[in-house]
Structure formats: C-alpha cells, structure tokens
Design a binder for these strands. Structure first.
Length: 482
RNA sequence: GGCGCCAUGGUCAAGCGGUUAAGACAUCACCCUUUCACGGUGGUAUCACGGGUUCGAUUCCCGUUGGCGUCACCA
C-alpha cells in the first residue's frame, strides 16, 4: 500500500515551530517511501478563524520546500481538502448518523447549564466528564426534540467497563480503562464536526496510512480507535511526536520570541536551516551527519528513530547552524541577501561587495551585518581610549601614540593603498623599530575603527576606506589619545 | 486529583546486557594569527533515586521522585 501522510493545520494565522516539524516529519515519512503528502485544512472552529491564515500556511510550506501532492489549492482524488467544504457536503453528519444507528453514538440535548453542573474544579483546573444522561432518551423523545428544533450534539457512546488498547509506532501499546473514556462530542451543535471526529473520518476517507501529530493527542488516541472499530475501518499507524519546549521546559509560546516559523524568519534565520535544525529536535539520523538539505533528509529519515522525550529549542545552536549555512552559501546568493543590510549603513562610495564578503564567515544571521561594518562608513569619535593599551601585545597608550605618529608619516608618503603594499611597508617599519606585526597593527586598527573587534585587519580596513579617510582617522586618533 | 507519557552532560543527542558512555552547540585552556572570527588540539561536564533480574546493568522489570500532557460543542 502506498504511504500517505497529511499535514492538517488549523488556520490560526500562525505556523508554530512544532507544527512545522510535524509537517516535516509527515512529509519525510511519505517521501522516504515515495508516498503522498497531502495538505488538509481543519477549519471546523468558526470562532477561531483568522483572516489571511491560509496564505501563511501556503507560504510557510512553500518557504520550507514541503510540497504537497494533494490539497485545497491543487486538488486531488479525495477532496475537498477543506473541512468546512466537507461539512457542506454533509460528510461528517452522514457518518455520525451511521454511528448513531449502530448504537456507537447518540444525540445529546443537554444545555450549558446542565453541563456546567457536571464540572468540578481540581487544582484550579476545570474538569468535566459527561454522565451519559441523554443516552437513555427514548426514540420518541429524541424525535420530538429534533422536531422541536432543539439544539443537539452527537456524542460517542463509549463503554464504561473493560479496557482499550491502541498502538503507537513509537510508544508501543497503550492500554487504558474504558471508564476513562469520556463520551466526546462528535458533531457540535452548529453542525460542524469536532477535530476528533473529522480527523478520523477524513484520515480514513483520504487513505492516510501514517497519522503524524503532536504528543498532546496521545491521551485521546484510544477514543479514536473505538471510532475506527465502530466503523469497521482499518486503523492507521500512529506516530506521536514529542513536544518542543523552551529553556524552562514549557511549550514554546508567542512570548518566547521564536515560537513560529515566521518569527524565526524575521530573526534572519534561513528557512532551510530552520528546517534542518528542527528536524534534529526529536530525531537523529543513524549516521552522524548534522547538516543536510531536504533531499538528504528524505534519504536519511527513519521515523522509528524519532525520540519520545521532549526537546528544548536551543537558539544558540540554531544561530550557529545558520552561520554555517551562510558560510557554505554560494557567493551570488550571499551577496543578494547581504547587500540590503550593507546598504543600510554604507552610504559612502566604498567597495560594498568587498565589505560584504568580509563578514561572510563572521555572522550568524544577516541582520548581524550592520553593526559589524558600520565603522567603514563612519566611526565613533567617542570610543574607549583604553583600547590603545593592550595587555596581550604588551602595548601601552604611549607606545600606541608613538606608533601612530610614525605610521601617519609613512602613510602620508605613500600613494599605493593596496592591502599588500600597506602591509609590506608597515611590516618593514615594524622591523626597523623591532615591533611585532600584531603589536604594530593593533593601534592602527583601533584608530581606524574605534572597535576592539573588527571583521578585518588594520591594512585591510585602510585599503577599503582609502587614503584620505585613513590619514584623517589616524590624525584624529593621535589627538584623541592625548 | 484521575489517567497517560517521558527521564544519558547546561542544550541537542548516540547507545538498544559487557563501550575508555560517540558526536554537535555552549564553556574553558592552549596553538595558529594582521585584532576578532575561522581553524586546530586538548580539558571540564551526563546515565535522577531505590529495589530487583543477571556472571554482568545506562540498557530489562518494579517502585520512588521529577517533568510534561490530558480530562472543551479548541484543535
């Protein structure tokens, strides 16, 4: 049988990073076996609908490179792929009624007031368990209620004794007492199905072979099995994924700053890097590889190696990996992505390409660029004077001043401001005064940048900013040190 | 609170009865060096606890503890 998986997001206007990973895993499972990956939109909650949410889903998948084989936008043999459209087709109601006829489900007319009496509060959490009140309604009563237009829901009729076992490919068999199984709502009073019901019906109708979803559904999974059994359908393979958490081991939330794919993109992280990184949160390949593209992931992916315990999202490592991606990036693409950031701070007529390339191996994300290179354009006139004293080079401020004076003289007598020439003549000067290159260059670099850390050496900077500016900055420095 | 799941360094993790318990990020030291970075070398740091089973447990079983999830006409 052909492997078929699906990604079934709700249009919430937000691509949570855990969802993205779920989509990725579903995609990889399908593609590893040359199967189909479908997109289904679960918009059964009219209250939660968000405008533009669909576009975010499409854009995110596109950005991530996860191409679906069937879906609302491209169609397919088992459509429609949007649940609200399937509601209109009457699909869920028909199936729910089949269950009612079999005695596996029943109409419930309980109102909010009665329902709220069933609730109790434990540790500040509201907990409710339906008491099967409407199960005992007679056929006549039900008919009368229906005829009177009384609002109703359809509930699953679960047994109260015995046990139910379901199997997850990762977690193995999980058995629960049937007394734990609440009679969950299948069809809501507005006629829409609940997630729980729509999922089972659609996964079956769409021939899904592997259901990939978050761990939070583990508890309700036994109830799904009963639904499949009630219909007499084959139960698909379940693959429940462990959660991704923040450093406090809680679910990633909006306030974390990087809980969604969009957040991370906004931070300057590359989509392919995010995908790579997120794949490794809860899964590892049999090989020791760590950096790979989507195609390689498809080859390597074995869902049986997905871990069962939660993973903390480590921003530091994500950024490191992004830096690796930038480092490996071909020059043209790099320049295209980097230039907008270079343009932000370089307004003078400088070799921007050269400047951009200087930081290619020194940034983790593109937004790092401006801070690193702004000094080429303008340097602060108010930097830390103590930089002119450097312990490691055994350099004092006085020595710096003296070096700078000599250097100024040398530079004023040179026209060739190429990096090579500058380095050669300054090195010679150093030799004559018995100063090591590192020590000699230190004050020059400070004078030209005002920074302890720069993306280039002293002569490189000088060659980029040019003769006039170099001499200027050194003059300023000499005055500044005093 | 009931039920369920999980448990290897600070983080991601390999391991699937016998290992000097991989690797990566972070961290520290040193080397290299036209600063920083990169790179190189090395170091610190992990099997939650208690019982079993076994000749032998990180690995299997039970319990404890801890964390998480779930208990909606949300998904």
């Amino acid at each position: 049988m052909k492997v078929r998986t699906r990604f079934a997001p709700s249009p919430t206007g937000y691509m949570h990073i855990g969802n993205l990973r779920t989509a990725l895993y579903a995609y990889l499972i399908a593609k590893h076996d040359c199967g189909d990956f479908l997109l289904r939109i679960e918009d059964t909650d009219k209250n939660r609908e968000v405008e533009g949410a669909l576009d975010i889903i499409y854009n995110s998948l596109k950005l991530a490179g996860l191409k679906h084989d069937e879906g609302p936008d491209i169609g397919g043999p088992v459509g429609p792929y949007v649940q609200s459209e399937r509601v209109k087709a009457g699909i869920y109601m028909d199936y729910a009624k089949m269950l009612v006829e079999k005695g596996e489900a029943y109409y419930c007319f309980c109102d909010d007031e009665r329902l709220s009496k069933l609730k109790k509060t434990i540790n500040g959490e509201e907990i409710s368990f339906y008491d099967k009140h409407c199960l005992s309604l007679s056929k006549e009563e039900i008919e009368a209620n229906l005829k009177a237009g009384k609002p109703f829901v359809i509930r699953q009729n679960n047994p109260t004794t015995g046990t139910t076992t379901f199997n997850d490919d990762l977690y193995g068999d999980i058995t629960v007492d049937n007394s734990e199984l609440d009679d969950m709502v299948l069809i809501k009073s507005d006629g829409y199905p609940t997630y729980n019901f729509a999922n089972v019906v659609d996964d079956h109708l769409m021939n899904i072979t592997h259901v990939v979803r978050g761990n939070e559904y583990l508890s309700s999974a036994p109830k799904y099995n009963r639904l499949y059994d009630a219909f007499g359908w084959d139960i698909p393979k379940y693959i429940h994924c462990p959660p991704i958490t923040d450093e406090t081991h809680h679910k990633l939330s909006k306030r974390h700053g990087a809980a969604s794919f969009e957040d991370m993109i906004a931070l300057g992280l590359l989509p392919e890097c995010i995908l790579n990184f997120v794949a490794l949160l809860g899964w590892s390949p049999a090989s020791n590889e760590e950096i790979f593209d989507l195609n390689r992931m498809i080859e390597l992916f074995d869902y049986r190696r997905i871990s069962k315990s939660p993973a903390v999202l480590d921003m530091t490592k994500l950024r490191w990996m992004n830096g690796k991606y930038i480092e490996m990036m071909d020059e043209n693409r790099y320049l295209n992505l980097a230039m907008p950031y270079v343009d932000k701070v370089i307004t003078k007529d400088l070799d921007k390409k050269k400047i951009a390339l200087l930081v290619k191996t020194r940034i983790e994300v593109f937004p790092d660029i401006p801070d690193k290179i702004a000094f080429f354009n303008d340097m602060s006139s108010d930097y830390d004077k103590n930089l002119y004293a450097n312990e490691k080079n055994k350099l004092t401020k006085d020595e710096s001043a003296s070096i700078l004076n000599d250097v100024l003289n040398i530079l004023e007598n040179t026209d060739d401001f190429s990096n090579d020439n500058l380095f050669t003549i300054l090195k010679e000067y150093g030799k004559s005064r018995d100063i090591k290159v590192g020590k000699l260059m230190w004050p020059i670099r400070i004078a030209l940048s005002g920074l302890e850390v720069t993306p280039a050496g002293a002569t490189e900077i000088a060659s980029i900013i040019g003769r006039g500016e170099t001499i200027n900055r050194i003059k300023n420095a000499i005055n500044y040190i005093k």
